[in-house]
Nucleic acid binder design. Structure first.
Lengths: 150, 150
DNA sequence: ATCTATACTTACCGAAAGGAAAGTGTGGGC
DNA sequence: GCCCACACTTTCCTTTCGGTAAGTATAGAT
């Protein structure tokens, strides 16, 4: 949440003043804004809630928690409130007792979910590649360990 | 990192034993695996490094930090090491002094970057929608505050 | 001999994430 | 009068995030 103020500082100590990166793609102002929103949205729970709501439509609080799996009530409340604030989910309170609160995606939320679709597919397709890479990395780490201790 | 053990537990206390969610899309085993990788990859620094490397090709450590912006050496090291471990970046050490270490995306990293492309575009397109939604939310919050304090 | 550059690593610390569990409010059923 | 349901909120606590600053290694330049 308090990231933006440090944005201009580079890697500590020495910074050359001029010589900007010069990539033509996007203009720097938008870059910053986009980064901010990516940082907020690229969050584990947000993505999982997004997916659950995309697949199940309208769900109540407790059910939503069950579907997401492994989330505490505190985090679920927090996540879903943030998403409501950002206009990703709609929260409907039915004034009955016991309370009945329903959550579903807004059009904005649905469009974000669609954009994430590619990432989900990528994850599905490349899961074992990552697993294997991780094993190789471990193996190399063990090897260099042996070398350096000899 | 230590998330996986709590995965089966729902929202604490009461869980109905049977009655699984029943969505036909993906089978539950892959779901878990995909979630794990999403959790790891859906990280602010990872995404930013990914983008920088996508746009600049091969870069050295210090330069990479400058391009990402606002990242400390510690976090940069950690992030790129993780990414190397997962097979997203290639780390090339030139055995010279002073050291020269170059980073670039692997094909796997490039494919992930491509998958995230949709999210970047979404963020660009919907930035002001989110900003406005946030303002409305604030406004409503202020209103209910007044009501409840009367 | 000392300084420099580079890519780190380590130690220290405060802030934030996040879990577990207990508490809250309320109307209807017992 | 008490309990239950549900959607929270609050408190307490541990873990992780992440920044700052200092240290390390080493060959060549001065």
């Amino acid at each position: 949440m308090k990231k933006t103020e440090s944005q201009a500082e580079a890697i500590s100590s020495h910074r050359q003043p001029a010589e900007s990166p010069t990539y033509p793609e996007t203009d720097p102002t938008i870059e910053l804004l986009v980064r901010e929103i990516i940082e907020r949205v690229a969050d584990k729970w947000t993505m999982l809630v997004l997916e659950v709501l995309e697949e199940h439509g309208t769900v109540r609080f407790t059910r939503l928690g069950e579907l997401v799996g492994g989330i505490s009530q505190k985090m679920l409340t927090k996540t879903v409130r943030q998403m409501e604030r950002d206009g990703l989910v709609q929260r409907t309170i039915h004034p009955v007792i016991p309370p009945r609160v329903e959550y579903c995606l807004t059009p904005l939320g649905r469009s974000l979910s669609a954009s994430f679709c590619g990432v989900w597919i990528w994850a599905e397709q490349h899961y074992d590649e990552i697993t294997k890479s991780r094993e190789r990395f471990q193996q190399r780490a063990r090897e260099t360990e042996i070398i350096s201790s000899s």
